[in-house]
Lab assay of single mutants.
Amino acid sequence: KMTIRVKGKELARRIAKEMKDRNLKVEIHEHGDEVILEIE
């Protein structure tokens, strides 16, 4: 399990899509400006 902190929703969406393309499970937690992606 891996956690990534990202500034900006646009970048977070791009990373999430990339991870889904690799068949990984992604959970997205938004905290205002910061987005936390949990990847399994």
Rank of each mutant, 00 (worst) to 15 (best):
L37I: 13
R5K: 09
R22L: 09
R22K: 09
V26C: 02
E27Q: 12
K20I: 12
V6H: 02
V35Y: 15
R13A: 13
I28V: 09
E30K: 06
A12E: 00
I4D: 00
K17V: 05
L24T: 03
L11D: 04
I36F: 10
I15M: 08
E38D: 05
V35S: 05
I39L: 04
K9T: 09
E18F: 15
I39E: 00
E40P: 04
R13W: 13
H31S: 11
I36P: 02
V35G: 02
L11P: 02
G32T: 04
L11I: 09
L37K: 01
G8P: 08
I4W: 07
I4P: 00
R5V: 12
M19A: 07
E30L: 11
K20G: 07
E34R: 06
V35L: 09
I39M: 04
N23D: 07
R22N: 06
L24D: 00
T3M: 12
E40Y: 15
A12Q: 01
V35Q: 04
M2I: 14
E34Y: 15
E27K: 13
R5Y: 10
I39W: 09
I28K: 02
E18G: 08
K17N: 08
E38A: 06
N23W: 07
R22H: 07
E34S: 09
L24H: 06
I15V: 05
E18N: 11
I39A: 03
K1S: 09
E38Y: 15
H29G: 03
K17M: 10
H29P: 00
E18C: 15
R22F: 06
V6D: 01
E10N: 09
E10G: 08
E40M: 13
M19V: 03
K17F: 04
V6F: 08
R13M: 15
M2L: 13
K20S: 12
A12F: 03
M19T: 01
E38K: 10
M2D: 03
E18I: 15
H29L: 11
R5I: 13
D33K: 05
I39Q: 01
M19R: 02
T3I: 15
A12W: 04
A16L: 12
I4E: 01
R13Q: 12
H29E: 05
D33I: 05
D33Y: 05
M2V: 13
K7W: 11
H31G: 05
V26M: 03
I39H: 01
E38F: 14
H31Q: 12
T3S: 08
I39Y: 05
G8E: 06
N23V: 03
I28M: 12
V6K: 02
I15R: 03
V6A: 03
E34D: 11
E18S: 12
V26H: 02
D33W: 06
G8T: 13
K20H: 08
K1C: 14
I4V: 06
